[in-house]
Amino acid sequence: MTVQIKPAPIRRAVTVKASQERAFRIFTSDIGRWWPSTHHIGAAPYKANVLEPRQGGRWYEIGEDGSEADWGHVLAWEPPSRLLLAWQLDAQHRFDPTLVTEVEVLFTPQDDGRTRVELEHRLLERYGEDAQKVADSVGSPNGWGRVLELFADAANA
């Protein structure tokens, strides 16, 4: 008998010293500038991460040799308040077009001019037997926590 593992969604948040519009732009258009180079899947050394600015757009990385490695695609593009991405990396961090988990990022303006950025990575149960392993990885301090820390550094600069 196989037990279905359903880990809780991974949730992380930061508040940055940037307007809602600027925070959204830095997270999306400038993602290649702040995304951690250690978090890449391509065979070539990492150069940049790209989000195409539209629903249905690609999410991919570019290697130093110009090669591209798909990560997923944009499910919802609602500037400056919401971004919904399809994360299509398997438990070994390889692109799998048949696997879709979701990464939702909300940008909420605060009264003091800052913006709260909340990230949720959900549907991790779609990893089956690897669900808890993936949840532990993306939920670790080196996972989404590190990604948001680097984003906050860029947004606060």
Rank of each mutant, 00 (worst) to 15 (best):
V3P: 02
Q4A: 15
I5N: 06
K6G: 04
K6N: 14
P7S: 08
A8S: 14
I10V: 15
R12P: 00
A13H: 13
A13Q: 15
T15S: 15
V16H: 03
K17E: 12
A18P: 09
S19Y: 08
R22N: 09
R22F: 04
R22K: 15
R22T: 11
R25D: 12
F27W: 15
F27G: 00
F27N: 01
T28P: 05
T28Q: 05
D30P: 05
I31Y: 01
I31M: 15
G32E: 04
R33G: 03
W35F: 12
W35V: 04
I41E: 04
G42S: 10
A43D: 13
A44T: 08
P45I: 08
V50G: 06
L51Q: 05
E52N: 04
G56M: 10
G57Q: 07
Y60N: 00
Y60W: 08
E61Q: 11
E61F: 01
I62S: 10
I62R: 14
I62Y: 01
I62C: 12
G63Y: 00
E64F: 02
E64H: 04
D65L: 09
D65T: 10
S67K: 05
S67E: 03
E68G: 02
A69L: 04
V74E: 01
V74K: 08
L75C: 02
A76K: 15
R82S: 05
R82P: 00
L83W: 02
A86Q: 03
L89N: 04
L89M: 12
A91N: 07
A91R: 06
H93E: 13
H93G: 00
R94H: 14
D96E: 12
D96S: 12
P97G: 08
T98H: 14
T98W: 07
L99G: 01
V100R: 14
V100Q: 14
T101P: 02
V103G: 00
E104K: 09
E104N: 08
E104G: 14
L106G: 05
P109E: 05
D112P: 11
D112Y: 13
D112M: 13
D112T: 12
G113H: 11
R114S: 15
T115E: 06
T115V: 10
R116E: 14
V117I: 11
V117L: 09
V117T: 03
E118N: 06
L123W: 03
L124R: 03
L124Q: 00
R126Q: 01
Y127W: 07
Y127S: 01
Y127T: 05
D130W: 06
D130S: 14
A135L: 01
D136H: 08
S137I: 10
V138W: 02
G139F: 09
S140F: 07
S140H: 08
P141Y: 09
P141S: 07
P141N: 08
N142D: 13
G143C: 08
G143M: 05
W144Y: 13
W144T: 01
R146N: 13
R146C: 12
V147N: 07
E149W: 09
A152G: 11
A152V: 10
D153A: 15
D153G: 13
A154D: 06
A154G: 04
A155Y: 07
A155G: 11
A155Q: 07
N156H: 12
A157G: 14
